[in-house]
Each structure stands twice: as C-alpha cells, then as structure tokens.
C-alpha cells in the first residue's frame, strides 16, 4: 500500500473545519476563538519547522545535531512543566527539578529502547531516536507537571496539617507522605488509564499514524505496545523522582516546612 500524499488543498479543507469552530465560538460568545486560531497557526508553523529540521537531520545523520535537537526539546518541555504549575518552586528549582527528572527518565529509557530493544545501527538513527524521545518527553512532561502541581498545591493548602505532624515529632518525609503518594498517583494516572483503554476506547495516535502511513497493523500494534510500556515506565519513574525531590525541597535541613520557597503563578 502506498502512502497517499496530502496536498496543501487537503490541509486547507481541514483548516476550514477549525475556522468554522472558531466562528461558532465567536457567535456563541465562548471567547476561545482567538485561542483556537492562534493555536491552529502555531500548530502549522511549529510542525512545518520541525518537519524541515527533521528533513535536514535525517539527511545528514550526525550525533551532534541529534543531541542539539534533543536538548532543545528537553528545554522546551522543561519550560512547559514549569508553566503548568500554579504553585512552583522559586528560582532555578522551578525549572530545574522537572527538567532534570525528564532528562533522567526520558533519555535513559530512550537509550534502553535504542540499544536493547530496537537495536538500530547507528544507535542514534534519527528516524528512531527523535520520535521515541519526543513521545517520551511529551508524556513524562504531562506526568511530572501534574505530579508537581498536585504536590505544591496540596502542601500549600494543607500546611497546617503538615506542621501539626511535625509538632508531634514526625519526620519531614512522614509528614508529607500521603500528599506525596497522592501526587505520584496523580502523575501516573493518565498513562495507566491510557494503557487500560488502548485499543478499546481509543486507537493510540502513533499506531493510527503508522497505519495511515501504510504499515501492516500488527507491526504498528507491536510498536505501540513498546511505546506505551516505555512511556509508562518513563512517566512513572520521572514523576516519582520529581515529586520526591520536590517534596524534599519543601523542607530545610531542620525539617521545617518552607513554603516561602514556592511562588504563585500570576
């Protein structure tokens, strides 16, 4: 089966649907028409840009360029994690914590996939490494930002409970344990749900894309299972690390709750 190439006209027809949605939003005074149009334009520009970058990188397979692109992706994801938290750590911690957690989990798991499972040669072959890393980052980003947002927000709301426990001689770790557990669960839940619903409620995006592009369904399914497992592990470990270090940072070396280390967005 050959890939049916899309023309600009095809995309134009799809864009009309989005414009109609924006029009409806305007008529119904939902107030999101501006956001719809801007987000739509961003999608086009950002994807065209990454398409061109990938075209260049695929043509000249060079570890340096791939590393550079990976780092840019990581930093963008780190910024996004920071932006999604209502209460976040001040200073470098706000950016660094989520970014480090994503770096460790996403890169580590992507490398395992490249070396141990897919075993392409060379290992950094961009057709594999870049999409794998992109999917890892995109999903760990969601888990880590959900987990950290929950952690910081709950700690802020329940400060009197945490301090009451400290007054009773609990350790910092014990005093925030239930909040930490809850936050880690929150971060992992989307992936667990996605695994449970995969194939029944939804056809995952990557598999859909592969099938549309002409891959045999069973090959697409195997890749999808691989990706789901990798993403779940990466999101889980990343969320775990981010929430654990985040909760430690809320206390100082005398186990005092230091909520002034958080800042409220906006």
């Amino acid at each position: 089966m050959n890939l049916i190439a899309l023309s600009a006209l095809d995309l134009g027809i799809a864009s009309i649907l989005v414009l109609l949605l924006a029009l409806l939003s305007y008529k119904a005074r939902l107030g999101v028409e501006r956001q719809i149009v801007i987000a739509g334009v961003r999608t086009v520009l950002q994807l065209l840009l990454i398409g061109m970058i990938l075209k260049v990188i695929f043509a000249a397979v060079h570890l340096g360029w791939i590393t550079l692109l990976s780092m840019v992706m990581l930093l963008m994801a780190g910024r996004e994690v920071m932006a999604r938290q209502k209460y976040r750590l001040k200073g470098w911690w706000g950016f660094g914590l989520g970014t480090m957690a994503m770096f460790v989990s996403s890169f580590f798991i992507t490398l395992i996939a490249l070396f141990v499972i897919v075993r392409v040669d060379p290992w950094y072959t961009p057709q594999y490494s870049i999409p794998l890393l992109g999917m890892m980052l995109g999903n760990t980003m969601t888990g880590i930002s959900l987990g950290l947002d929950r952690l910081n927000h709950t700690a802020w709301q329940q400060r009197s409970i945490i301090e009451a426990r400290l007054m009773l001689g609990w350790t910092w770790s014990g005093a925030i344990a239930d909040i930490r557990h809850d936050s880690i669960r929150t971060g992992m839940m989307p992936m667990i749900n996605a695994m449970a619903a995969a194939g029944i409620v939804s056809l995952p995006g990557m598999m859909t894309g592969q099938i549309l592009a002409g891959s045999p369904p069973m090959e697409a399914v195997k890749y999808q299972i691989l990706i789901m497992f990798l993403i779940t592990a990466g999101t889980g470990f990343g969320t775990f690390a981010a929430v654990w270090f985040g909760s430690r940072r809320l206390f100082d070396d005398r186990e005092r709750l230091r909520l002034e280390r958080l800042q409220v967005k906006g």
Binding site: A164, L166, M167, L168, G169, W170, W172, R254, E255, R256
Partner: peptide
Amino acid sequence: LAHEWRARVALLPAE
C-alpha cells in the same frame, strides 16, 4: 535531629 527534638519538646498549638 529536628524531628527527635520536636518529639521531646512538644508544641501544642492554639488551634
């Protein structure tokens, strides 16, 4: 350790 200290020097808050 701070938590050992607080176990021995107990603060009973007003609320």
